[in-house]
Design a protein around this nucleic acid. Structure first.
Length: 399
RNA sequence: GGCGGGGUUCCCGAGCGGUCAAAGGGGACGCGCUGUAAACGCGUUGGCUCUGCCUUCGCAGGUUCGAAUCCUGCCCCCGCCA
């Protein structure tokens, strides 16, 4: 039997894989040892604000690390930020967040929680799920006490506030409260460790100060790299539209993965699969492997094979997909007006459909249209495949 | 509360009485090339019954033949002073 100190050191070492910051130095190991001395697992906190309905691969990076803690016998405390979501975390933001309704937050929270279980172990001893409304709906006196723990100067140290201030952009007092509320979450759940992306560093550190103000030991903080989105430039985020959702369809997931820039691959391998990018494959094959592995992880091996086959059929062989939605169009004897047909088939405006038509983006079967002709007889369309751009397909049916 | 600056199309930003659906850039989309990568080239980027019509430049009124551009009130943002 090895010594506690030794084992704590080993755990700390393995948990630091892929981590950007573990602060303060040695704090994680210290927390591990002291929990061990008390004969209990660590309480490892992650707060997620349900501002969007889906979890994406960016969240997955942090969730995977949490899973590592669980696999070592520690307890994850997942905080659904139903109340903080109404405040809006300004981290990394250059503008105010829109305000969500309570119902939206509720809905998002439900799917969030469910999706997180794709990665986390949901056995009761490994996972505790809380809503911060439990303690943040506090009396004014308590809120004032919380506000007394921190100075404006401390808050304004934060980079995004400083930048916005310098750029003459608004910073609301409400936003400045956000880090305090998040810090108070740590107090409420008595967190030993809190995880987050690197953009959370400030908030996580402030949580330490707030715990201290409440007479608690300060949490160790662990920050994970921010996963770049499929555009390869900006942070993965739903609102930027550069995300891959963890419940997305296999084909979609594979396709999106194939569209990431080569430079992002290595990071995807490391942060999402926990392995190094193979060096013996060319970039194209490495990316295909990445796509297969991601789909295998989140859907299964069969789905991964199918996704790749469907992809090849579509983009390598240039054929139509095996199944596609059917679009029924009405027939009244007159020729079918294509902009109207395209618009209703794919939810575009007619003007947009017309532009695509003129730009040569539209195909009926094998026939690419040049946009000279905007009306076609129904017989020429019935049963044909309508293709707009590279990836919009549907089978036309006269009704 | 006072003084000054500002709110323009998805974003940034030019326009400051007609030639404005509004320069330029970004993003996005389309075509070409290709590995649904990058880079590059070309094009598109309010709506429609589309050589024209309608709606849009914080909101509401007004002046004018005509307003994103001028006037009045209101809302919001930024700075300085208090």
């Amino acid at each position: 039997m090895q010594s506690d100190v030794q084992e704590s050191a080993e755990q700390a070492m393995s948990l630091l894989h892929n981590v950007v910051d573990s602060l303060p130095d040695g704090a994680l190991q210290e927390r591990l040892s002291s929990a061990r001395a008390e004969g209990r697992p660590l309480r490892v906190k992650l707060g997620i604000d349900p501002t969007a309905p889906d979890i994406h691969l960016g969240h997955a990076v942090v969730l995977r690390k949490l899973r590592e803690f669980q696999d070592l016998g520690h307890r994850v405390v997942l905080i659904i930020g139903d109340t903080t979501a109404q405040v809006g975390d300004p981290s990394g933001r250059s503008t105010l967040r829109p305000i969500l309704s309570a119902e939206e937050i509720e809905r998002n929270a439900a799917t969030f929680q469910q999706q997180a279980m794709k990665i986390l172990d949901d056995s009761p001893q490994s996972l505790e799920i809380r809503h911060n409304g439990e303690w943040l709906q506090m009396a004014l006196a308590e809120l004032l006490a919380l506000m007394r723990t921190t100075t404006v100067a401390q808050i304004l140290e934060r980079d995004d506030f400083a930048k916005r201030l310098a750029a003459g952009q608004p910073v609301s007092v409400l936003e400045m409260m956000y880090p305090l509320l998040q810090g108070y979450d740590s107090v409420a759940v008595r967190a030993d460790v809190e995880l987050g992306g690197t953009d959370q560093k400030f908030n996580l550190l402030l949580g330490r100060d707030i715990q201290r103000a409440y007479g608690q030991p300060s949490q160790a903080i662990v920050t994970m790299p921010i996963l770049v989105g499929i555009d390869g430039r900006r942070k993965m985020s739903k609102s930027l539209g550069n995300h891959i959702g963890i419940t997305e369809q296999p084909a979609e997931m594979f396709g999106k993965t194939m569209s990431i820039p080569d430079e992002a691959m290595e990071e995807y391998f490391r942060l999402l699969l926990g392995r190094e990018m193979p060096t013996d494959l060319g970039p194209r094959d490495a990316k295909r492997l990445l796509g297969r592995e991601l789909v295998t992880w989140l859907h299964g091996p069969d789905q991964a094979r199918e996704a790749q086959a469907a992809f090849d059929r579509l983009f390598v062989e240039g054929r139509e997909p095996e199944d596609m939605p059917e679009h029924r169009f009405g027939v009244d004897g007159a020729p079918v007006h294509l902009p109207a047909l395209i618009a209703s088939a794919f939810g575009l405006s007619r003007s947009e459909a017309r532009r695509l038509l003129v730009a040569g983006a539209v195909q009926i079967g094998e026939q690419r249209l040049d946009g000279q002709e905007q009306d076609l007889p129904a017989e020429a369309l019935d049963g044909q495949v309508l293709k707009v751009g590279k990836r919009r397909f549907c089978r036309l049916r006269a009704a």
